[in-house]
């Protein structure tokens, strides 16, 4: 465990120095805030920027609070996942390339501690900023659209955090397996493209990790189908554990690829 705390301190310092600790939460908060604002002021924005004829009447739908929060999740699922995949694809692969790895690997470190330090720092950065962003979002939704049930929101936040954990593990595992470029492509493929496929063809099955955000939204608006949800949760947790084990194994195996 001592091994872990030292490696974690190294990760923490690195992420403070490259400002990730600052800009990732800011971006998530920004998207969380701007989503309800844009929806709420859409008529005024359209009036101000487009030369709409004055006698034209807009029939904008009335949004409920959970629809606004779900559309924020839609933003996070695309832009957030791009940030996760591109910003962290090098988390293990880059160290092999730039020589940090040689400094680490000559010492008797435990690879479990090594992977877990990566997991911890990514978890704090990404799940933390997504939670802060969603809290800001729910505050704005509350002001502009109306209250959200607190218990449902906590359930929603928990479910979405499990999905983020899955995303983090995918990125760490592909980073342990491949070089930075390939790792970012593989993570994008697994996180964004598979998600699109799942939403297009996904009516044929109900249990998949990529459906967790959708189930999170269902928790929020109160008509959750419990059985597929719990199965998806179980499958996701099992996959997360498998990915962590695989990442430890791959990190150990790819030591020889480190550039000296």
């Amino acid at each position: 465990m001592n091994n872990f705390s030292i490696l974690f301190r190294k990760e923490w310092r690195e992420n403070v120095r490259n400002f990730k600790i600052l800009w990732i939460p800011l971006v998530f908060i920004l998207f969380g805030i701007s989503e309800p604002l844009t929806y709420y002021y859409l008529p005024q924005i359209l009036n101000a920027v487009g030369n709409v004829p004055s006698d034209m009447v807009f029939q904008l739908p009335e949004y409920t609070p959970d629809q606004i929060i779900m559309s924020t999740i839609g933003q996070y699922q695309f832009i957030g996942m791009l940030i996760v995949a591109f910003g962290f694809a090098g988390i293990i692969a880059r160290e092999r390339k730039n020589g940090t790895a040689t400094m680490l690997y000559v010492r008797p470190i435990s690879y479990t501690g090594y992977v877990f330090s990566k997991l911890a720092i990514m978890g704090i950065l990404i799940i933390g900023s997504a939670c802060i962003g969603l809290l800001a979002n729910v505050y704005y939704t509350n002001v502009l659209y109306g209250a959200v049930d607190a218990v449902a929101f906590i359930g929603f936040l928990g479910t979405y955090s499990i999905w983020l954990l899955f995303a983090i593990c995918v990125v760490i595992c592909s980073s342990a397996a491949f070089s930075t470029g390939i790792a970012s492509v593989v993570s994008i493929l697994l996180l964004v493209v598979v998600q699109l496929v799942d939403s297009l063809l996904g009516t044929y099955w109900t249990i998949s990790p990529w459906k967790l955000p959708m189930y999170a939204g269902q928790i929020l608006n109160g008509n959750l189908d419990k059985t597929p949800f719990f199965w998806s949760l179980t499958v996701t947790v099992v996959v997360v554990v498998l990915l962590v084990v695989l990442a430890v194994y791959l990190a150990k195996r790819n030591v020889s690829k480190a550039k000296i």
């Binding site: 490259n18 400002f19 600052l22 800009w23 800011l26 971006v27 908060i29 920004l30 805030i33 701007s34 604002l37 005024q44 009036n47 101000a48 800001a136 704005y140 002001v143 502009l144």
Partner: peptide, 28 residues
């Protein structure tokens, strides 16, 4: 649209965060 009708209390956080992002990026 005059300036007083803009709900500054709601818009201000967005502007501040954008400014912060730009400042952080420029410092870096």
């Amino acid at each position: 649209m005059d300036l007083n009708s803009i709900p500054w209390m709601l818009i201000l956080p967005v502007l501040i965060i954008q400014l912060l992002l730009i400042i952080v990026a420029v410092i870096d």
